[in-house]
Amino acid sequence: MGHILHTGDEEAVQRYHHELQGNRLLSMVERWAFPTYNRDVGVSSDFSLPGSVLLRRTAEEFLADLWTENEAYLRYLLGTAIPFMLRHDSTFGLRAEQVARAVQRRMESTYDTTTRRVGGETVRRLLG
């Protein structure tokens, strides 16, 4: 993620997303990373999460990152991270509708068709 944040390398986003599909351990770490980094849950040595997780702090962080990070990281958040997060908290910290509106507004400022498509898919997931 550091590489993507610093370089905006969109190919790295695609490679990482593809790698997640076939790597169970990496998928576990992906599901675990945001909730623990943002302190929505405590760190566990086995990368597990409780059955129910309310991602309040993660949603807050996402709303900030949506406007401050590069397009490649945005695409990672929309196409990879959020789908993983929604598996554990379909309300996205009780802010799914607010996040969906923010994503819609952010998509108005991007000209990249792939990011716009992924953003639309994310809005549909959030509004379920």
Rank of each mutant, 00 (worst) to 15 (best):
R57L: 07
L63D: 07
L126R: 06
V99E: 01
G51K: 11
Y37Q: 07
G22E: 03
L63F: 07
T113M: 03
A81K: 07
R56N: 12
D65G: 06
E19M: 15
L20H: 02
T110Y: 05
D89L: 10
R124T: 13
A100P: 01
T36S: 08
A96H: 11
Q21A: 13
V29Y: 02
R39I: 02
L66G: 04
G120R: 00
V13N: 00
N38H: 11
G2P: 06
E108Q: 13
I4D: 09
L5P: 01
R95V: 03
R106G: 00
R87M: 10
R57K: 12
D46C: 15
R15P: 06
F34V: 08
L126E: 01
L55R: 06
F62G: 01
R31I: 00
Q14M: 09
L55Y: 03
R87T: 14
V41Q: 13
R24P: 08
E61T: 10
R95P: 02
I82A: 08
R116A: 02
A64P: 07
N38F: 12
G120Q: 11
H18E: 14
H88D: 08
S109Q: 04
E61A: 08
E97M: 04
P50M: 08
R125I: 11
Y37K: 10
E30N: 08
V13W: 01
T58M: 00
H3E: 05
